[in-house]
Amino acid sequence: MTMYIQGASAFITEPGTPPQALKEELARVSTAYFRRINRYILLSLIGAHRCVAGRTVPADTAVYLTTERGNLGETEAVLRQIFRQHSLPMPYSFINTMSNTASFYVAQGLGAAGPNLSISDRLLSFERGIELLAVDFMRGRVRSALLGGVDEANPSAIHFERTYGIPAGSVRGVEGSAWLWVTDEPEGSIGRLLGTGAVRDAGEGRAWLKERTGGSPVIAYGLTVPATDREAWSRAVGAVDEFDYLTGHGWFDSATALGISRFVQDCPGRLLLHVSRDRPGRYTLTAVETAAK
């Protein structure tokens, strides 16, 4: 089942960007009025609206919002209210800690009344979103979907080092959201999502890619792929170039979505193989082909 990309967007901003600046950015891309939304929801909405870019999505469009940490800032605020201030959490704050609040607002803002999911899976949230989307496409349950990765910046250096196993400060931190609008109709598409899958090593990776396409890819790596592995990967799959989106655009927990989305926007007529690595050292690949301009 081919998934055709109709739109792509990446909204990234410096950590600590004032909420008012985010609200003004949202007003530039949407005329809808949103109330009671927090930073995380603002990041989600800006990216999703940029992806659709003023078009109307079919009413049955699904939303797959992937995230590593969810509504991190609001959750911290609620925990502070309960445990530090020994008070009741404020209702809006409490409601906004629910993981699917942001995807609700995205659906409401864009009139996307199809299935609505929020997905998280350690270091592979965006890839899991693609997997679920592929299954739903195959079953005919979904024919149009918005697939996004959204995360706020995580200021904890300790948490970063524990999660990713690399020194804090080795990448420039940003925050934001990146989205793809995917349909089963090829007309007007700007690319194809060829799928995602897990492999043990670069050799298996080469076979996985060959099953899907004969082209030579541009290769991109997630944050946790060690520099020592990269040459082997590049050689095995016959990579013609590297797309280093982390150096170019910065890193946040949903950076895979950022990398793939930026590639779709910036690199027409090419094939991308994105390589992610989870904690036990398994690799997950995602392949995307972009249309020539």
Binding site: K23, Y33, R35, R36, I37, M90, Y92
Partner: peptide, 9 residues
């Protein structure tokens, strides 16, 4: 303030 209405009122 509490109802996030500053954009409108």
């Amino acid at each position: 303030e509490e109802c996030d209405l500053a954009d409108r009122f």
